[in-house]
Design a protein around this nucleic acid. Structure first.
Length: 484
RNA sequence: GGUCUCGUGGCCGAGCGGCUAGGCACCGGUCUGCAAAACCGCUUACUCCGGUUCGAAUCCGGACGAGACCUCCA
C-alpha cells in the first residue's frame, strides 16, 4: 500500500502527508465571493478540491472540510475608486447587498449539485463571523503587529518581519516587493507600503457597515479566512487550499495574520489549484473569455456548438492534473465525452462478465495502480489512464482473450466503481428519463426488427432514418438494438 | 520593470535521467443486409542551441516563445 504524497506549495516539494491527528484531516478552502455567478474557472478549483476531499474520504480519513462563502464585499481599488465588490453589484442590479449575496448563493448551491460536488462539512459566511474577525485583529494589535489609524487598522509588516518572515509562501522578498509594486495606491495611512488592511473605516455610502472598537467599518480582505479557519479547525490544521491566484497576497497575508495572532502558520500543507484557460489565457471577466458553468450544460454559450453534460466536463477536467493549467475546448470536451462513453460501456459490460477458474492477468496490481496514482499528489489523469487499462481488460475478457476469476472480478467491480463514482465523482446515470417514450420505442424497434427478419430493408431503414431525424440514434449491436 | 512557471505527436494531456502513459482524431481490420455503433490493431512526439552523463523530453547554461503573479480575482 503506497502512502499519500502531496505537493506542498509552502516548501515547493512533494511531501508525505501526515495529519496532525491520526486518521483525521482538517481542510480549509477559499470559497467564492458572491457578487456574481461563479464562472467555469471558479468551478474548476472547487471541482479539484472536491476530488481531493473525495479521495481523502475514500482513503478512510475523517475529514472536516470548511469552505467559506465571502458575502462581505472586499474593497476593490481598480481605478482609484474604492468600492466594495458586492456593494457595486448591488448598485448595478438595484438590489441590496444581502439580496445579491443570497441570489448568487442559490446559484452557487445549484451548481454544486449539478457538478456533483460533495457539500463541505461547513460553509461559513464572512458576515456571520465579524466578531471573530474583530477578536483576531485585537489579538494582532495586542501582539504588536498591527496599528489603528483614523478608524482603520493595518497589519504592520515591518514589525512582523522582526520576528517572522513575510513572503514565505509566494517567495517574495520585502525589499524586492517595494520595487516591483507598480501602483502604490496612495495609502498615506499606512506606515509601510506592504502593510495591508485588517479593518477599513466605512465610507458614508457603504451598504454594509459593522461596529468595531475602531469605529464603523468593514473587515479587511484577508481576515475572514483566518477567523473562520481558526474557529472551525483551530489555529493550525492540515490542509489549506485555494486557487493559484490567491497565493499572493491573500494566502501570504493569512499566514501573516495567523503568525501575528497565534504564532504559527495556519496550515501544514498548502495546496494550490491551477487556472482554467480558454484560448490560452486565464479565464477572466476582463478578458471576455469566460462562460458560466450553467451555460455550457444548457448549451447557451456560443463558445461551444453543443451542450455538454456536467459529468463530461468533470471528466475532462480530471484528465488534467490539478496543478496544471487546462485548456478547455470543444475538441477536448468531445474527446472526453467519447472516452467517458467507452469507459461507461466497459463498466456496464463488467457487470455481465462470466468468471472462469483463473485470471489471465494480475488484477491486484491493476487495482493498486489506481491507489498509486491518487496517492501521488492526486494524479487523476494517471488514474483515468489506468481505468482505461481496466476497460480494455474488460473488453478482452468479454471476447474471450483474457479471463478472470469470480473473486478477482468482484474486487475489480468494487475498485472501478469506487474510483469512478466516489473518487472522480463521475456518476453514470444510465436511467432513461423518458419513461413514457421507452415503451413506445420498444414497440417501434420491435416492428423494425420484424421488418429486418423479413429482409424488408426499405421499412427498417425508413424507421431508422425517421428516428434519426427525430434525434434518436439506433444502434444494431450483437445482442440486439439499442437507442439513445 | 520585478518574481515565478511552462514549452510533449493533428488536438487534449501524463511522465520529470534508461522500462518511452491515456483519451480523441486519422488509418487498417473484425462484426454487419447497408449504415452507424462497438471491439481489436495502429511499431518513439518531446521549441531551438550548447553542456553533464554509458544514456536526457526528463539535470545544467543560453536563445526564442507562451502564461501567471506583483492590483479584486478560483
Amino acid at each position: 500500500m503506497s502512502e499519500l504524497i502531496l505537493y506542498n506549495s509552502l516548501t515547493g516539494q512533494k511531501e508525505k502527508f501526515e495529519p496532525i491527528y491520526e486518521g483525521k484531516v482538517g481542510m480549509y478552502v477559499c470559497g467564492p465571493t458572491l457578487y456574481s455567478e461563479p464562472h467555469m474557472g471558479n468551478m474548476r478549483t472547487f471541482i479539484n478540491f472536491d476530488l481531493i476531499y473525495r479521495y481523502l474520504l475514500f482513503s478512510g480519513f475523517k475529514v472536516k472540510y470548511v469552505r467559506n462563502i465571502t458575502d462581505a464585499g472586499h474593497i476593490t481599488n481598480s481605478l482609484g475608486e474604492a468600492e466594495d465588490s458586492i456593494g457595486k453589484a448591488a448598485r448595478l442590479e438595484q438590489l441590496q447587498s444581502l439580496e445579491i449575496v443570497y441570489k448568487y448563493n442559490v446559484k452557487f448551491q445549484e451548481l454544486q449539485r449539478i457538478y456533483n460536488l460533495l457539500p463541505p462539512s461547513i460553509e461559513p459566511t464572512a458576515t456571520g463571523h465579524i466578531q471573530e474577525q474583530i477578536e483576531i485583529i485585537e489579538k494582532i494589535i495586542e501582539n504588536g503587529f498591527a496599528y489603528a489609524v483614523n478608524g482603520s487598522v493595518y497589519f504592520d509588516v515591518r514589525r512582523y518581519c522582526e520576528k517572522f518572515e513575510y513572503g514565505i509562501l509566494s517567495g517574495r522578498k520585502i525589499d524586492e516587493l517595494a520595487e516591483e509594486t507598480r501602483v502604490l495606491n496612495a495609502q498615506e495611512e499606512k506606515r509601510f507600503f506592504a502593510d495591508f488592511a485588517l479593518w477599513k473605516k466605512a465610507n458614508p455610502d457603504d451598504m454594509q457597515i459593522w461596529r468595531s472598537p475602531w469605529g464603523d467599518g468593514n473587515p479587511g480582505w484577508h481576515i475572514e479566512c483566518t477567523a473562520m479557519s481558526t474557529k472551525y479547525l483551530g489555529s493550525q490544521f492540515d490542509i489549506h487550499g485555494g486557487g493559484m491566484d490567491l497565493k499572493f497576497p491573500h494566502h501570504e497575508d493569512e499566514i501573516a495574520q495567523s503568525c501575528g495572532s497565534f504564532g504559527c502558520n495556519p496550515a501544514r500543507y498548502w495546496l494550490h489549484a491551477n487556472m482554467l484557460n480558454v484560448n490560452g489565457q486565464k479565464m477572466s471577466k476582463s478578458f471576455g473569455n469566460y462562460f458560466l458553468p450553467k451555460e455550457i450544460v444548457d448549451g447557451t454559450t456560443n463558445i461551444f456548438s453543443k451542450p455538454f453534460p456536467p459529468h463530461v466536463i468533470r471528466f475532462c477536467m480530471m484528465q488534467a492534473h490539478y496543478r496544471s493549467t487546462l485548456d478547455l475546448s470543444e475538441e477536448s470536451l468531445s474527446a472526453a465525452e467519447k472516452g467517458l462513453n467507452r469507459l461507461c460501456d466497459a463498466v456496464d459490460l463488467m457487470n455481465k462478465l462470466k468468471p472462469t477458474v483463473s485470471s489471465s492477468f494480475d488484477v491486484e496490481t491493476l487495482i493498486q495502480s489506481f491507489y498509486d496514482a491518487m496517492n501521488d499528489d492526486f494524479n487523476a489523469p494517471i488514474l483515468i489512464a489506468q481505468l482505461f487499462e481496466a476497460a480494455k481488460k474488460i473488453f478482452l475478457i468479454s471476447n474471450g482473450t483474457e479471463t478472470i476469476t469470480k473473486g478477482d472480478l468482484d474486487k475489480l467491480k468494487i475498485a472501478v466503481n469506487g474510483f469512478l463514482n466516489d473518487v472522480l465523482g463521475i456518476s453514470i446515470q444510465m436511467e432513461s428519463n423518458n419513461s413514457k417514450l421507452a415503451p413506445v420505442m420498444d414497440l417501434v424497434l420491435e416492428l423494425r426488427q420484424q421488418a429486418r427478419i423479413n429482409k424488408d430493408w426499405t421499412t427498417s431503414d425508413q424507421i431508422r432514418d425517421g428516428l434519426a431525424a427525430a434525434g434518436i440514434e439506433v444502434k444494431d449491436g450483437k445482442d440486439g438494438t439499442t437507442w439513445g
